[in-house]
Design a protein around this nucleic acid. Sequence first.
DNA 1: TCCATCTTTCAACTACTCATGAAACGTTGA
DNA 2: TCAACGTTTCATGAGTAGTTGAAAGATGGA
Lengths: 138, 138
Amino acid sequence: MDRSKALAALAALSHGDRLDLVRLLVRAGEDGLAAGEIARQLGLSASRLSFHLSALEQGGLIASRRAARNVIYTIDTGGLGRTIAYLLNDCCMDHPEVVACCQHGRVIETPSLRPASGGQAGGKAGAAPDLTAPARES
Amino acid sequence: MDRSKALAALAALSHGDRLDLVRLLVRAGEDGLAAGEIARQLGLSASRLSFHLSALEQGGLIASRRAARNVIYTIDTGGLGRTIAYLLNDCCMDHPEVVACCQHGRVIETPSLRPASGGQAGGKAGAAPDLTAPARES
DNA sequence: TCCATCTTTCAACTACTCATGAAACGTTGA
DNA sequence: TCAACGTTTCATGAGTAGTTGAAAGATGGA
């Protein structure tokens, strides 16, 4: 992932409404949600939502497809993952403490989430040392 | 990590100069770098650097300490890790594909995951997410 | 104490992002 | 083809971030 793309993605994520939007689309899974439905759930005007959606799409974080009269938006898990990977890999250069902190945030305390999937990526669990990891405070 | 803190951190990261600054401080490790040295290496004016530094400090991504005439800035690995963890955990809800992409991005070099569309998201697939499935093209 | 060095703060300006409502565009069904 | 619906784009104004140079604050050495 190149720098400008990562910057666009980060800029897109640094807004409360758009963070909510991402969360909503992650929950929605691959079915996605129509723009109107998103606007209803987040309480946004159509034009404002469209503005946010285009920011996220330009940042490579969501994708869209037309379905009849609706435009369905879905989360782009690849783009999201690459953005986070960019931070970890390119920016933080896999700094052990950052990675550990990150893993603790993920492994410990996984609340009752239901992103529609079975379980959370067991990826790597015990790998990380304690370090400073304040874990997430929720 | 609360939402407003995460937003401040993400906003701080969504600027090229500040991303370079983070990278520089990660490299510098816990010894950190003096503001003047940072300005020299990044080719920034003193006031502009100070502006960026305060944005990063406010976002909880760096810390500072005085050493004689210099102010030494160091990366806050905890803050950085918590920010990334917030994205993964709270926002993406540990979506298997995001996590996988993220892990691959770190270990290998971000394989060519299909951006959106194709995604066979763990959506409602039911079975455990095929974490190992996507990448691994080598 | 005075001066040199390093860093931050301030004021002014530009440019951009955000928010709002109206209009335009694309699609569907009659 | 026309009307209805869902969505995006446009025009406008307000607010905020970014940039620059000058001035002020903090520290150490003579």
